[in-house]
Nucleic acid binder design. Structure first.
Lengths: 251, 251
DNA sequence: CGGGCCCTTGAATTCTCTCAAACAATGTGG
DNA sequence: CCACATTGTTTGAGAGAATTCAAGGGCCCG
């Protein structure tokens, strides 16, 4: 699977960024917008299945997801894979690698994905002249930390059924916030193998666990994806209360 | 267990900070040092077992650990506990809560701990006037993210034996870097319950797993703690390669 | 039509948990 | 100083959870 194969190159100017209109994201000042517009050097469109960032690679790019789904993961030498988190529109990827030189995880596209590409050299300017954006970067990193804390709690201490319910409620909440569900379709584009690799379970046991959620009418497993039927039921089953932020920064 | 009980209040000026001398931490410029010295409003000393920060509490403090060991954790309603990471000298705690209003995890002292207390109101000044420190804050958050990624991989995909070996090698490496082992004693001050709650295992199974590591002469379980006998053996057993940073920022 | 990918199911095996009991070390109050 | 409670560690046994192995079915695409 070739990394970073460009599908097309039409550009969305930051001023007309479709995400900026969503109430989920914080507004920019004119100055900020002007800088970010300059910070962005291009756009990238990749197919589902493409490896966007690869563990072990150096000086990787800094991206924001403009559309589509993806996931971050790590692998052990023998092929065991752990999915760490999912990425959706508005999410920044590659920050760890940008700050620390080497990617410690990979990112793969789950669906066709478009990415804003940022110029890593201008990160210094960002910190020097745009403290509010610097603050946002720290905020974004801290938010990711928070999600990982919850995932860790889930894998370490929740039962298989609770874990699965948490994951699906979590994905539903995030996807809803970024307006990923146009109209009625509420489908999460993952396979059961992805669920298994996120929950730390085998594919067989994951299948049986998801079946229980289906029998309780909380979800419906569709073709290569999952429809959420009762997100509150999922949250109740998992004991997870959801995130409360109304708005968040994005770059 | 009362939170934040002050044990004494003698102060260490930042200029004479014992951590600053360690080669593990990056140097400050005179300006940075001057600001940080002013940013620090006091010092706190707490006993082992004290809850330093509590999940659910608001407007918490921002601290750097000056001495001692602690751990971050989350709990489910029914008491199941997951330890997320450990904190050691030089580690910043409370950043998540400071940025996002409410603590989503707790922090407890494993040993007597002294903390530098920072004035949260001056965080804006930091971002506005000290971009290098702002960068450091983002770096610190990204580094925590990286550790959580590795922990997640461990709990999700490593076997019990590998997990235990990883954890102990990880703690050893971090403790060594912060010079926590004066002389020969290489003892990590945790109980098997802590290990269990970190690895997502029961205490009984943790005991049996640690026994296997002892039999292989990789560790020795001492009184309320663990002596590392062969850290390379632990790393080999876990398949973990360790962190490569020579130096890191701290505030 | 065949191959590949994904989902499903059953069965045997292995891992991990809970329950239960006991022991060691430490600290406390009488 | 001893009796007793508390905390942490250790061990065995049975129950439950999750894994691997194996096989079959559906669907899409070349």
């Amino acid at each position: 699977m070739a990394a970073l194969k460009v599908r097309n190159s039409k550009q969305t100017p930051c001023e007309q960024c479709p995400l900026r209109g969503l109430e989920h994201f914080r507004e920019f000042t004119a100055e900020e917008l002007n800088f970010v517009s300059n910070f962005k050097t291009g756009e990238l469109a990749v197919d589902a299945g493409t490896t966007i960032l690869l563990e072990g690679s150096h000086s990787p790019h800094l991206f924001t997801v403009l559309s589509g789904w993806g996931f971050r993961y790590k692998m052990l030498d023998d092929g065991r894979r752990q999915i760490l988190n999912y990425v959706m529109p508005g999410d920044l990827i590659g920050l760890q690698g940008t700050l620390m030189g080497e990617m410690q995880h990979s990112v793969e596209a789950l669906s066709p994905v478009t990415l804003c590409v940022f110029e890593r050299e201008k990160l210094g300017t960002l910190y020097r002249n745009y403290p509010s954006l610097a603050y946002d970067l720290t905020w974004i990193a801290a938010q990711e930390e928070r999600i990982l804390d919850e995932n860790l709690l889930s894998i370490g201490r929740r039962s298989a059924l609770e874990r699965a319910a948490y994951l699906l409620a979590f994905l539903y909440q995030r996807a809803k916030a970024t307006n990923l569900f146009k109209g009625e379709r509420v489908s999460i584009p993952i396979t059961q193998q992805h669920v298994a690799d996120t929950l730390g379970l085998s594919i067989v046991h994951t299948n049986k666990t998801l079946k229980k959620l289906s029998e309780r009418r909380l979800i419906r497993w569709a073709d290569r994806g999952c429809d959420i039927l009762d997100d509150e039921g999922l949250m109740q089953m998992s004991g997870w209360e959801g995130y409360s932020e109304k708005t968040r920064p994005f770059i």
